[in-house]
Amino acid sequence: MASRYPFVLSGSRAFPGKSIAISTSLFLLVLAFSAGGCIREEDITLEQRAHQLAGELMCPVCEGQTIDGSNAQIAQDMRLKVRERLDAGDTNANIRDYFVVRYGEEILAAPKGSGFNLLAWIVPVVIVLGGIGIALTMINNMRKSTERSAVPTAPAEDDLSMYLEQVDKDLGVADQANQSDKAHS
């Protein structure tokens, strides 16, 4: 049976996920489009860049703080150094390398995405994709076992009916309402 609404099939062959799939992809499309539209040249000052970089460099004498957050003398000196290199026209990558040469890899607040450290970045992707994959497989397997055991199911209830039922219940007329519902289905 065809529906009056676009994107909606009804009747026994309807795939309930279809409309959600379509609206999700529309949603994503709009997102992609608008995201593309809002990338502009950012009005970013050297000071802001310095602040960002300072957030990516660890303070060597403080435990677990970046130089951006630390009040230690060495952090202040390093912040000045960052500023100096920026004024001299260095790129962010140049500046990071400058500090790695002097203090070792430990100075970077996040490991670089190369060599052994690439692992730090790949594993999370594997975890997340793997996790979603396992979840979907689990749901699918559990679903298949239903089809085999063929549990009879009533159609899912939707929209206002569930609230009206609850209201009826609260008003103490649940029993009649339940029975009349059963009669309809």
């Binding site: 957030g55 990516e56 660890m58 677990g64 970046t66 070792g104 890899e105 430990e106 100075i107 970077l108 607040a109 996040a110 490991p111 052994f116 450290n117 730090a120």
Partner: peptide, 9 residues
């Protein structure tokens, strides 16, 4: 080799 894994990561 020591590395740091902090907020940016």
């Amino acid at each position: 080799v020591s590395v740091s894994v902090s907020a940016p990561y």
